[in-house]
Amino acid sequence: MLYAQILINGLVLGGLYACIAVGFSLVWGVLNVINILHGTFVVLGSYIAYFCYVHLGIHPFLSIIVSGGILFVLGFLVQAGLINRVMGAPVLTTLVLTFGLELLLNNGILLAFSADYRTVQLANPLGSTIIGGLVFPLERVVATALALGLTVLLYVMLAKSRIGRAIVAVRMDAEAAALMGVNVKRIYAVTFGVGALMAGAAGSLLAIVFPISPLNSTEFLGIAFVVCVLGGLGSVAGAMVGGLALGVIESFGALFIGPEHGLTIAFTLLILLLIFRPTGIMGRRGYE
């Protein structure tokens, strides 16, 4: 029974992890850019949810629209204005550039909102329900369901919509896509914006689960790294599997080794996976 409960806790956490990571995975896969800003994008989403709730009374489940929208615009501008100019450069250039931007943005958030931890205290919490002796914390379950729903939505968008097909085309072969009339630079910017949108939405949902602080950005980035390596880079399904797997692994790790070692377990796993199976659990697949 205990194990079943821990499995549920892990899956509930894992859905949110998947949502954090899928935008990061998309940007990495399509643009070949590691977006160090991603963790701070998530934090920014959380702050937007916080202020929406405190000042406007918008529930975090609804403010994903606001945070997603703002983050999309921000991401689009960052890519169109800055990163697009160094797209062909070596790995190190984009890596260091996004690191610099992350220092800038994170410092800005720190100045604006201070490092104090804030929490969203819901006026009418849903509480939790017990089914068959297992506790389901309803807020988290709904947040996870929404997170997974968004992830599925992204999958459908990539598979069915015109812009989604263009993103996939650019990932497969940017030059060929350009010859077919796709504006590659614009697709890069849209992709980066969508990645940021997913981060912002994940941040909104996380706001009701975790305390909010700019200092969390590193942890979210670390989670995105691990999920991508775990699930294999370059597919929505991979990020989903990786996120759920990480959530479960962390929950059981906390039980057997201690909750303070959650991230250590994840990082150790990441290094071992990189050494022995760099294609991830699912093997290498693209956004086809």
């Binding site: 800055l82 260091v96 550039l97 690191f99 610099g100 931007l101 800038l104 410092n107 800005g108 720190l110």
Partner: peptide, 16 residues
């Protein structure tokens, strides 16, 4: 207070 941001700006200038 803005020591990290200053490093960030330096990096951006450097890259471009």
């Amino acid at each position: 207070e803005i020591h990290a941001a200053a490093l960030g700006i330096l990096i951006v200038i450097l890259i471009f």
